[in-house]
């Protein structure tokens, strides 16, 4: 089917979107994304398609461009080239449908604010720059805090939280955004086992509600337990697909090169015999 023959949809900003490249049933569609901080590209010509339902992991070695991919898709950092569509719309039109959990180490936890304040930041798209935080909206923030098991900490200064608690607060803020696509940057980095269980529980419940969850993930041992879709990246896209068929020794070898011992790879990946 020729792309030329496809009808196009005009956006608010005058561009036209080719529906074949921006399918509405794909939560996050990325085409030819290239990002560079200096002369070397951090992400080079990457294509990706994350389904509208389910849990996907973005996996790759340090410096492979995992976080960069997320940030560039969100427009947090500029991209050199490429297109990004969220549920068939440009990111500018779809912001209200996307929740973002940055790496918790990326902010200053000494900032003078409380847990509740941080969660209420997630309500920004509902209340706007000058809108009041009404009772029902506040109640919603409290519910989100309850959902991550942090309701008792609402009035705590954020600097007094442990790493795991900070990560839960970030997740509660994302829940307050009430989105259809949740993008998380290393949600399990530096958290305790109880927090990891709590977070994965919330993410799985989001999946059950029909939401899309995409997480940068660094722990290869839990990929198969937590996720159903995996995207392997090392600056370029290595492989993408269901965990059972994509998370293989061969693909991991291609992603990590010599950085993982072969025996280790065999333990982690789906047995090649399954092919």
């Amino acid at each position: 089917m020729s792309r030329m023959a496809q009808p196009t949809i005009a956006t608010d900003h005058g561009h036209s979107i080719d529906p074949a490249r921006a399918p509405r049933d794909t939560a996050l569609a990325i085409h030819g994304l290239t990002v560079s901080y200096g002369e070397k590209p951090a992400v080079f010509s990457v294509d990706a398609a994350f389904k509208a339902k389910g849990m996907s992991a973005i996996v790759g070695p340090n410096g492979a461009g995992k976080s960069t991919l997320l940030k560039a898709a969100l427009g947090v950092i500029p991209r050199l080239s490429g297109e990004v569509y969220v549920f068939g719309e440009t990111i500018r039109d779809a912001r209200a449908r996307v929740a973002y959990v940055p790496q918790s180490a990326s902010v200053d936890w000494d900032f003078p604010t409380t847990v509740m304040d941080v969660v209420q930041m997630g309500l920004y798209r509902k209340v706007g720059l000058l809108g009041r935080l009404s009772g029902p909206v506040r109640a919603q923030a409290r519910e989100c805090l309850d959902r991550v098991g942090m309701a008792d900490f609402a009035n705590r200064q954020i600097g007094q939280l442990s790493g795991g608690q900070q990560q839960r607060v970030f997740l509660a803020r994302a829940l307050a955004q009430d989105a259809d696509l949740y993008l998380l940057d290393e949600p399990f980095a530096g958290v305790d086992a109880a927090t990891e269980r709590a977070i994965i529980g919330v993410l799985k419940s989001l999946k059950d509600e029909g939401k899309a969850v995409v997480a940068v993930h660094h722990d290869l041992a839990t990929v198969r337990d937590y996720f159903d879709h995996v995207f392997l990246i090392n600056v370029r896209r290595i492989a993408e697909g269901p965990v059972e068929t994509t998370f293989t020794t061969e693909h991991l070898q291609a992603t990590y090169g010599g950085r993982l011992a072969a025996t280790h790879l065999d333990e982690l990946a789906v047995a090649d015999g399954a092919r």
Partner: peptide
């Protein structure tokens, strides 16, 4: 610009993702 200042000063990446 209180709300913008607060969100963007605490977490710039999140603020940008919010638009």
């Amino acid at each position: 610009f209180w709300r913008w200042l607060k969100i963007a000063t605490f977490d710039e990446g999140f603020a940008q993702a919010l638009g």
